[in-house]
Design a protein around this nucleic acid. Structure first.
Length: 182
DNA sequence: CGGGTTTGACCTGCGC
DNA sequence: GCGCAGGTCAAACCCG
């Protein structure tokens, strides 16, 4: 299933992924569009409907890759690719206009990789939640057409609350954020 | 010294 | 089977 901003004005986002940095007023990151993909449908979705200003072509680029949704995969000889062993995780991507790549969403992230992707002028960065037992990942990349547009994709759901240091601030941001800003 | 970042190597799946 | 592209690992490095 795929949802647009218009379909879930103000109710879907906090339900799905609390802590998503829609409301970070500090750096001016306001979502200009987002797409929600739940675990069951994202595989091979090429005709995804987009929310906000995300163009359907962009969405297809992000989620059309068949490599995104694999079933269980046997681990490699050296125990790598552990993440792929897990079944589908809920995914959520959105687009913001910001000068910074890593938005303050109340969680702590550790960068574990960066990769230059084809047809993109900007490298894609890979982050993992630093909280133990939390396997949420996110990847951040900029649009080649507009270097100020940041595509952030979350994978999985946090098993904990936002970091205590940032929780209050995150809550304040959430309180002051409205989807009508889209 | 501990935690985060960088970066090259490695692994896997897919298309041809 | 091979090459390509995406995703991850982990050692080295950086910084407070």
């Amino acid at each position: 299933m795929l949802s647009s901003a218009a379909d879930h004005h103000g109710s879907l986002y906090p339900l799905l992924l609390p802590g998503i940095p829609f409301c970070n007023s500090g750096a001016g990151e306001k979502p200009t569009g987002f797409v929600v993909l739940d675990a069951g449908e994202a595989a091979g979705t090429s005709a995804a409907k987009a929310g906000g200003e995300i163009a359907s072509t962009t969405t297809a680029t992000l989620h059309g890759s068949s490599s995104w949704w694999k079933g269980p995969v046997v681990a490699g000889e050296k125990g790598r690719m552990k993440a792929r062993r897990k079944m589908r995780e809920p995914r959520f991507c959105f687009q913001t206009r910001s000068d910074v790549d890593l938005l303050d969403d109340g969680y702590k992230w550790r960068k574990y990789g960066q990769k230059v992707v084809k047809n993109s002028l900007h490298p894609r960065s890979y982050y993992r939640c630093t909280h133990s037992n939390c396997r949420v990942k996110k990847r951040v990349e900029r649009l080649s057409e507009d270097c100020r547009m940041v595509i952030t994709t979350y994978e999985g759901r946090h098993t904990h609350s936002p970091c205590s240091d940032d929780a209050d601030a995150a809550g304040d941001r959430t309180g002051s954020c409205a989807f009508t800003s889209l």
